[in-house]
Amino acid sequence: MKPIQIAVASGKGGTGKTTIATSLALSLAEKYHVAYLDCDVEAPNGHLFLHPEFNTSTEAVIRIPRIDKNRCTLCGKCVEVCQFHALAKVGKTIMVFPQLCHGCGSCTWNCPEHAIEEIPNPIGVLESGKARQDFHYAHGTLTISEPMATPIIRQLKRLEIPPQTAISILDAPPGASCSVVETLRGSDFALLVTEPTPFGLHDLGQMQGIVEEMRIPAGVIINRENGDYLPLLEYCTKHHLPVMLRVPFERRIAEGVARGQTLVEIYPEYRQCFLDLFDSIAVLANQ
């Protein structure tokens, strides 16, 4: 059976996505087969809390064109079809710009001389293994100065996970653009972690726009709550976003997380909250 896929996203950075995702995984791993995928390939942090031991490492690649000069007639068709300007006809050669290439293959199919082959251009590393608490863990790390995150997220999500996996938990990158969409694709539920501030609310609105367009059921977790922030609660009501968990603003939590502790290590009583949270998710995801 296909595992239920839960993406933890937020829009705004630093609202506590990883804090929630890691504690959710730890709590559920006691009862279910869990897989954890850290999709924040620009700034992956889950491993700092879950201490995985990796046993597999592969390169994430973009397949970029290499032109066989003996076959190339300099007709320029590849330059014409490339929407990303990763190719240019310069004098007597076709120049390739690897950092602009999306690896779409259009130049390859369209070359009338079949003069293009594709070679792997590494953009990062994919690693998988087991978290210390004995569940599957995988993440991707983008190489510094590479401009695109979505290809490595796509490849991370295609890595094999153990067949008995019942729940996969995806920690999304911050923001509300293409890399978040790539993480959310195929998810059964989106947990939107927000903080009760105008910044948190504005960016939650961006995320709501995405999950609505992608038709992914979603719920909200309010982190660092310090009394009711009415505009946020009103927003959730208006957009039929259930508030599924509220975590108070506490210095003790902030200090613990800074040291690398998860929420359920700081307060073990949250385990039950996360188990209950999952039961609600399972219901909402099936509607």
Binding site: I144, E146, P173, P174, G175
Partner: peptide
């Protein structure tokens, strides 16, 4: 922005 890709560059 946060991160290290296109918009940051």
């Amino acid at each position: 922005p946060p991160g290290i890709v296109c918009p940051v560059i």
